[in-house]
Design a protein around this nucleic acid. Structure first.
Lengths: 243, 243
DNA sequence: GCTAAGAGATTGTTCAACAATCCTGCAAGA
DNA sequence: TCTTGCAGGATTGTTGAACAATCTCTTAGC
């Protein structure tokens, strides 16, 4: 640990400590179970494993080159993210979400995200512009992906935008909950036939929301987001019924 | 499956199917890992395993009479409930929550619980009085436990009251989140010396809240609950600093 | 007193085996 | 034809032992 003067640079030193801690955590996360979970997570969120699919233990031990016990630990990890469900003595399956799940997920998204934005008003001075940069990057990533006609990437950028939005609240538990909610939401997207119609509207709405945040108009932003999520829920429900 | 006329009794048949499904789920939950997790969960929430304690694998395999693999699966279950934390190559520990965690937990409680109560207004007709009965039972259980000077039991009844309150929203995900939040909250209670001073105020407040709900005065109930949780957070923070 | 090497303990992972449960298909009976 | 009961095979649940990787604590050396 390098010796630094503690007075003026204390804040930057804290920041540095956090980045190092994040790096260490990233290195440490190299357990076989979590690596296997990473691969399965991608397969599920990208749709290679469709809802309702069963994951065979023996088959996956060969593909992932891990033991059955380690694989089962990976299953548990994904189970608690909502990406798999366990049926005792029958195996693990990719969940099949229905309309009630859409309503449930969106209700929680509205509650959490709107509260985060509204809560920003009370601590405006603490929020430097730099905190909004990740959101900015996500918006531009979505716009770039749309120009390249890569709609799944647009969806991914949209997810990140909302995850970063929640991140503004500095609440570890909200971050974790949102991670789960968005992962489950991705499960829904795969049963929808037209990704373009689904994801395109979000691009402009995210940018509009970001501009309200940058202007520090938090109440307007909250109202905007509330309406945004209500309409988004309706759109998904409709796409879901039309599948 | 008994044959029933599908016309008039369709609603009650659906209800019956749900109760059966719930019974089946309850029977199915008998895996060794989950049983071990149940025992450990109680030990942690009741304080037998204090915050900071390490759980040795070899020791617990003997006590719980399960293999190391099964025990580790139980650890994973509890890890994702927030009742244990994994440190790679070092083992599992009971988390030590600090003041920031109190603030975080209460922020989420306020967001979720207040939203549930406020949301009841929109579906008042669907909410029969019977739905409030569990809350009623919890209030009376708390009052009885207080008369018997059993303050930990008062705390348990209080937790159940709030879990049942969330349950009114019929949201499986809110139920799960609340279960986690309240379990973590219990972790905090054990570092506080005076359970009576901590739990006593909740008894009357819960009853007052219940009466507002029974009177269908949802907005008043929501405002009451919001203030209730704000003050409760302050009380816990003070007790925490004074430990 | 401080640093560095090593022994011992603990966790991470694998493998093979057996028990318990589920699914499938088939045959017997109403 | 439809239901019921019963194998048989396949899959999951659990165990125990073994070895590798990592951490912790003690001890030796400066």
């Amino acid at each position: 640990m390098p010796a630094m003067s503690t007075g003026e640079a204390d804040g930057s030193r804290q920041a540095w400590l956090r980045t190092v801690a994040a790096d260490v955590a990233r290195l440490d996360r190299s357990s076989s179970a979590e690596r296997a979970a990473d691969i399965l997570r991608r397969s599920i969120t990208e749709g290679a494993l469709p809802p309702g699919a069963q994951l065979s233990e023996v088959e996956l031990t060969e593909v992932l080159e891990v033991s059955r016990n380690t694989l089962r630990e990976a299953f548990r990890l994904l189970t608690h993210e909502g990406l798999l469900i366990y049926k005792l003595h029958r195996g693990v399956f990719v969940p099949e979400l229905d309309e009630a799940d859409v309503v449930d997920l969106y209700r929680l998204r509205r509650v959490l995200e709107v509260d985060v934005v509204r809560g920003l008003a009370e601590r405006d001075p603490e929020l430097p512009d730099a905190r909004l940069e990740p959101l900015h990057d996500d918006v531009e990533a979505a716009e770039a992906a749309a120009r390249a006609d890569r709609w799944p990437a647009v969806g991914t950028a949209n997810m990140r935008f909302h995850q970063h939005l929640i991140g503004l609240a500095d609440s570890a538990r909200m971050d974790a909950m949102t991670g789960r909610l968005l992962a489950e939401l991705r499960l829904l997207f795969h049963v929808i036939a037209t990704p373009r119609e689904l994801h395109e509207p979000y691009i402009a709405r995210n940018r509009a929301l970001l501009e309200l945040l940058e202007a520090r108009r938090y109440d307007d932003a909250a109202a905007n987001l509330h309406q945004y999520l209500l309409e988004s829920e309706i759109a998904i429900l409709e796409a879901f019924r039309a599948r």
